[in-house]
Design a protein around this nucleic acid. Sequence first.
DNA 1: GGCATATTGATAACTATTATCATTATGTCA
DNA 2: TGACATAATGATAATAGTTATCAATATGCC
Lengths: 150, 150
Amino acid sequence: MIIVINMPRKTPPHKKVCDCQGSRRSRRREAILDVLSSGEGHLSAEQVHKAAQKRMPGIGIATVYRALKCLCGCGKVLEFIPSDGVARYEPGGDKPHHDHLICTACGCFTEAVDPEIERLQARLAAKHGYAISGHRLEIYGLCPCCAKKK
Amino acid sequence: MIIVINMPRKTPPHKKVCDCQGSRRSRRREAILDVLSSGEGHLSAEQVHKAAQKRMPGIGIATVYRALKCLCGCGKVLEFIPSDGVARYEPGGDKPHHDHLICTACGCFTEAVDPEIERLQARLAAKHGYAISGHRLEIYGLCPCCAKKK
DNA sequence: GGCATATTGATAACTATTATCATTATGTCA
DNA sequence: TGACATAATGATAATAGTTATCAATATGCC
Ligand SMILES: [Mn+2]
Ligand SMILES: [Mn+2]
Ligand SMILES: [Zn+2]
Ligand SMILES: [Zn+2]
């Protein structure tokens, strides 16, 4: 299985990631996972924070970041970092790998996957002697909605 | 022609980009272009700064950023932003489009391109009603050198 | 209930990048 | 050549997203 990989950040992430061992129940973490599971995906941490505040008034932004790291460690949430450098989060778990079409006008994300592209990527990597562990593909353009408006 | 596109940053870039009209000669800008043209590519702004200081002692980091923006506007330099969010620069101009293989061990970049992948991307975009304007593909894994060491 | 400790919120710190602004360099024209 | 308009520069402040710190609080277990 191909897994999308993000390059490591300069500042190392939290050491204690939620491995679901020794971690306690937390209403905020549940609320944050609920935000991602029930809403549309591809939210930034700030957007998650705003949505979570409706369910958990007073919840701090640091808690959101911590919970997202924790949930990503569990695989319950997926993180991906597009070229604006702002991490986006979407519910993980059962969701299969996919790439993203990104609208340069409205910024919306569309999920897409082409098995042939996936296979050719492995071939390209092998051609250069690479042992592939993941990839990241973003396609930019106008979404149908925005294209109509022009 | 497919052009690699980076998502817009939060803070808008400089208004006055070097369009080679009304801009004056600058020894620093020339030195910075020389750093990228003569050295190996895929340097961060900080790395460019360090290299430039050997030719231009006392050159400021702000000048490096300004020059890179300027040179990117001219097309003489290409910018791309991998998932660590740190922009990398390489000489542009005559260089054709390519994607990047990135080693997860040593962080080195290898350039690669597969015409078939390029074509299938356009097909995938069209399938979702997207008018494609660019894309970004990064493949992660162990480079041959690092794979040997394990 | 009491205890060990995981979680939290406020806030400081950090990194990469851009904005500001006073100073300097460059090109043009007399 | 010298003066002038202004582009370029360097130091530094500001910004944005994210992580670290730490005291206060919540949780799970006995
Ligand atoms: Mn997605
Ligand atoms: Mn390259
Ligand atoms: Zn759109
Ligand atoms: Zn390597």
